[in-house]
Nucleic acid binder design. Sequence first.
DNA 1: TACGAACGGAACCGATCAGTACCATTTGGA
DNA 2: TCCAAATGGTACTGATCGGTTCCGTTCGTA
Lengths: 179, 179
Amino acid sequence: MPTRARDRLVETAGELFYSEGVRAVGIERLLAVSGVGRASFYRHFASKDDLVVATLRDYGERWCRRLEQQVAVRGGGPLAVFDALADSFEQPAFRGCASINAMVEAADRDSAAHRVAAEHKRAVTDYIDGLLERAGYEQHGELAEQFMILVDGAIITAVRERGGESARRAKAVASVLLG
Amino acid sequence: MPTRARDRLVETAGELFYSEGVRAVGIERLLAVSGVGRASFYRHFASKDDLVVATLRDYGERWCRRLEQQVAVRGGGPLAVFDALADSFEQPAFRGCASINAMVEAADRDSAAHRVAAEHKRAVTDYIDGLLERAGYEQHGELAEQFMILVDGAIITAVRERGGESARRAKAVASVLLG
DNA sequence: TACGAACGGAACCGATCAGTACCATTTGGA
DNA sequence: TCCAAATGGTACTGATCGGTTCCGTTCGTA
């Protein structure tokens, strides 16, 4: 077959879950949009939850790669993180962070969505920590944690308000933190 | 009848929606737990969405009242906001902010949940703005917006990590902002 | 005591949910 | 050219979804 059913499912589900929510998108719709047969779905994934985890991992990796690239383009300084955020907030399809959304929607603390969201957050924190360390900040560990609060806060605020304003505000706060 | 069906519905729905998510709680369950009859439900609310809005408004009011009281107990300084947050994050039933959760779950930007969440955020921002103004900070408007990013960030972080640590971190950042 | 409003329970609606089973088709590699 | 693996389509399951309707009961109040 020309295209792999699994890849199409992850891509389609990634878009639909992000834009409409996980529970709001049924298997039926997923199959119709992706063009994958019902049986093929369950050949690749044991359940819908399995697909959710796959899409979240895929999202997390692409998100991190995109952030790294955008920060690099802007010189590699820690504050560039917020410029990259502002950019993504401006995009029409922006609806927050897929990991946060899935975590909130899942409710159950022991759910796979919660675990994947925690992993994602850990990866981003470590990346920012590296940026701060490379920039010469001694307290880079604690600063990275504080940056993450600003990142999450800016994301949630942007969901409410649209636009990059919250990211610029968060950047102003971060600037003060860096002294 | 001894208890008003409407009040019981709002109370029960408030708890269930908060702890398990709006979509995860069906009408059936709502009626079973609250002890309200199906017909009575639709006599008081035109739809489930109507009940959601009612619970969000109820939640928002109680949340603001609780915050005001806790801040007052701690002396009325702006930083006390984060101490109050840390307290609430420690509670076993804590699962973030009902408004944020509903907004994220609703996905649709034009939904009632989005509107109510925006109203709630506005009310809290105004309250914090008042605290800052009363404390003598000239840039109280911009500071309040920055505080809100810290508040939202701390809340989301607390959903992932449990405990009041994120609130204490946010307070440290806020302290730096106040100079 | 009598009345009307509010109520709880149950049967029912069409739609959709996640998931299973079976079948004919299409594919890339041998 | 041939075959095994992967695929898309359809029919189906039992459960649950939000919502409507009807009925007998219980309440506060006049």
